[in-house]
Design a protein around this nucleic acid. Structure first.
Length: 694
DNA sequence: CGGCACCCTG
DNA sequence: CAGGGTGCCG
């Protein structure tokens, strides 16, 4: 019987839920035209008419033909051209040796949207509003705090000594010259760094915040105050960086008093000088040099997590490395927290979970499984920040290729350009932290659990919950998005550094520094955190793994390591995680086989009739298994993989291949190639907010 | 041999 | 979901 040829375009599909959705939906629609659908007799789930501009072609030879590994054809063209033109141009500009697509270019990821947005802005980073009056930071606070510093010196020495063996800290890199020792290391991640450091990002936060401030009627002073705080934080970050860098530079000799003196002198210098942006070249040349020198050695390792983890470790013990990593994360976390705090205040009217989608059709996940009109934004919306774009057309297209001409999304999806902050990144903090003085709060934290509360990688394991220094709850998944650079990276902070600091803020900074200088508490705390995080996998990890299964059926152990950063991977833990996924697959394949056999019994002939939709029983079973509570929106890509799996099983069973004891292996091989990229949000232990609720 | 995947069992 | 067994692979 003549079949409708199908174009699966799987290389796009399985990596990009949105695209895949369109393709399969389209396919399904066509199938529905040819013959009634298997289960539910309605038309296309979206109620859309059948688009007819996809050039279908026979694909996988299900009906007995031999099937290659790829099993799909890859050419599928839609209109309008605007979207696909960009795809094509991307393809042309991104020659991949293996012919694989860059998974990032279709997904409506934060990165993409952000790129769009950034390209919409102008590229300058200096703004008048960022250069307020430079005369409010002239207090000589070294005098003010001299005694205090003296008193702290011993402790500072102590921590410096303690950190003398720690590897290179993380510092937002700016330049790499002038440090041959670390040049090689930096090279590896330089590309990524460059990408993260792009000026437009600074621009975006800056302008956006400014625009918001103005729009919302927030007083300029208030805004500037916040910026000042950011500035202070940044200064403190620099101090930390230098503090890390110094022991490294002097690692031949003992962490000397000289190092200490330098650091303290630096501190004094900063406190004692205006931080006038315009004139910092003179007064801060020394600092800047030092800062920049410290960058190459510090930047390389953690901001690009992959592959560099071990690069800085020749002479370090694993414990030192672990401590270093933890410290690095804390730094990132603090910056993130500060930015969140500022944004929260600058954007006070956006506590609404989806404030910039007021009339968006993406509002609900379909509990019934039936597609909602906003399916476009559904697939990744929970995980990837939606940063609106001036070019709403492209933004929409990114989220869903306009393969459905009648899709009424465009007008509804338009957003105000100023509504940029990615609200899908929770800005959830306790009220304490939301207070105006985040530094005081940080200090406050420091008394019990300095920084520990900010650890992004701590899963609240039972042991942790009982710790006296139990962290205040602070969630921010802004951090650690390797492939989704948020607009709030250190570059932004840097851009705000041209602000003068007030006396009180300097005092706060001092206090903060003091808080950080409790070495004994601090170090032991970090070690405890580290050890605690290593012990076992928790139910939260299991749930996370299950959700990850929607994206990856065959994760490698190395991939798992990158997504379970709060787990210290022993052989046992690794095996357990691997085993989990093995169990997941087992259940998955059992269901697939079951339904495939059922379809065979029902005398279905065309494998392509077997489409797993959200309202199919098979999906329901899978969803219950992997997504109990239905609090995570299953990506469409999973439906596609499930459909293909089902079809493969169906074809095999129908062809009688199941008489072969190893008849499933070819299917496994096929499915194993359909893993898609797991959203970066999973890298954060706080990422899927659903995980923390359950 | 270790690591991994699959299978079977409880 | 974990344990244990088997088989494959580098």
């Amino acid at each position: 019987m003549p079949r409708t040829p199908i174009c699966f375009a799987h290389d796009l599909m399985h990596k990009h839920a949105v695209n895949a959705t369109v393709t399969l939906r389209d396919v399904r629609s066509r199938i529905n035209l040819v013959q009634p659908p298997v289960s539910n007799g309605e038309i296309d789930m979206n109620g859309n008419p059948i688009a007819d501009h996809c050039d279908y072609r026979p694909t996988s030879g299900h009906a007995g033909g031999q099937k290659g590994d790829t099993c799909v054809e890859r050419d599928c063209f839609f209109s309008p051209a605007s979207y696909y033109a960009s795809i094509i141009s991307h393809l042309l500009s991104q020659p991949e040796p293996n012919g694989e697509l860059d998974p990032s270019f279709l997904l409506p990821s934060s990165q993409k949207t952000e790129l769009l947005f950034q390209s919409a802005g102008n590229g300058t980073c200096s703004r008048e509003a960022s250069s307020p009056s430079p005369d409010c930071g002239l207090i000589n606070s070294s005098q003010f705090h001299n005694e205090h510093l003296q008193a702290k010196r011993a402790r500072v020495e102590n921590i410096i000594r303690g950190m003398s063996l720690t590897p290179n800290p993380i510092v937002p890199g700016i330049q790499v010259e002038g440090d041959q020792n670390h040049l090689e290391k930096v090279k590896g991640s330089y590309r990524e760094n460059k990408r993260k450091q792009r000026v437009p990002q600074q621009q975006s936060l800056h302008d956006i915040s400014l625009a918001r401030a103005g729009q919302n009627g927030i007083q300029v002073e208030e805004y500037l105050q916040l910026k000042k705080q950011l500035h202070i934080l940044q200064q403190q970050l620099k101090q930390l960086q230098e503090r890390f860098a110094q022991p490294h530079e002097l690692n031949d000799s003992s962490p000397s008093q000289g190092s200490m003196e330098k650091t303290l002198g630096l501190l004094k210098e900063k406190f004692g000088q205006s931080l006038d942006s315009g004139s910092q070249g003179v007064s801060s040349g020394y600092r800047r040099d030092r800062f920049c020198r410290s960058i190459p050695k510090t930047r390389g390792s953690e901001w690009s997590e992959k592959g560099t983890r071990t690069s800085d470790s020749h002479s370090l013990t694993s414990e030192d490395r672990a401590l270093s990593e933890i410290l690095k994360r804390e730094l990132i976390q603090v910056v993130t927290q500060a930015v969140d705090s500022v944004l929260k205040q600058v954007l006070p009217e956006s506590p609404d979970p989806q404030p910039h989608l007021p009339s968006s059709p993406t509002v609900t996940a379909s509990s019934t499984g039936r597609e909602f009109t906003g399916a476009a934004a559904s697939a990744s919306s929970k995980w990837l920040p939606k940063i609106s774009s001036h070019k709403s057309t492209i933004s929409v297209a990114t989220e869903k290729p306009p393969a459905f001409p009648s899709y009424p999304i465009r007008s509804k999806m338009e957003r105000k350009p100023c509504q940029v902050p990615p609200v899908n990144y929770p800005l959830v903090m306790t009220s304490e932290v939301q207070g105006n003085s985040i530094f005081s709060q940080m200090l406050l934290c420091g008394q019990n659990s300095p920084w520990g509360s900010l650890s992004p990688k701590m899963v609240p394991s039972p042991e942790c919950l009982d710790r006296p220094w139990r962290p205040i709850k602070l969630k921010s998944s802004v951090m650690r998005h390797q492939r989704c650079p948020t607009p709030y990276k250190s570059a932004e902070i840097e851009s705000l550094a041209s602000l003068p600091a007030s006396n009180s803020e300097l005092a706060e900074m001092q206090a903060l520094m003091d808080g950080m200088y409790f070495p004994s508490i601090h170090i032991s705390f970090l070690y405890h955190q580290h050890l605690a995080s290593a012990e076992a996998l928790t139910p939260g990890h299991l749930k996370k793994a299950k959700l990850m299964f929607f994206f990856s059926r065959y994760p490698t152990s190395s991939l798992l390591k990158t997504y379970f950063l709060d787990v210290q991977f022993t052989r046992c833990i690794t095996s357990q995680l691997i085993k989990w996924f093995s169990n997941f697959r087992e259940f998955y394949y059992i269901q697939m086989e079951k339904f495939a056999r059922q379809a065979v019994l029902e005398d279905l002939t065309d494998p392509s009739d077997l489409i797993v939709t959200r309202d199919s029983e098979l999906f329901r079973i899978l969803n219950v298994h992997y997504n109990k509570g239905n609090d995570f929106e299953v990506p469409d890509g999973f439906l596609d993989v499930a459909s293909l799996t089902l079809q493969e099983f169906f074809s095999a069973v129908r062809a009688g291949k199941d008489s072969d004891p190893s008849w499933k292996k070819p299917i496994y091989k096929i499915i194993s190639k359909l893993d898609s990229e797991i959203p970066d949000a999973f890298k954060s232990s706080t990422c899927p907010k659903e995980l923390n609720q359950g």
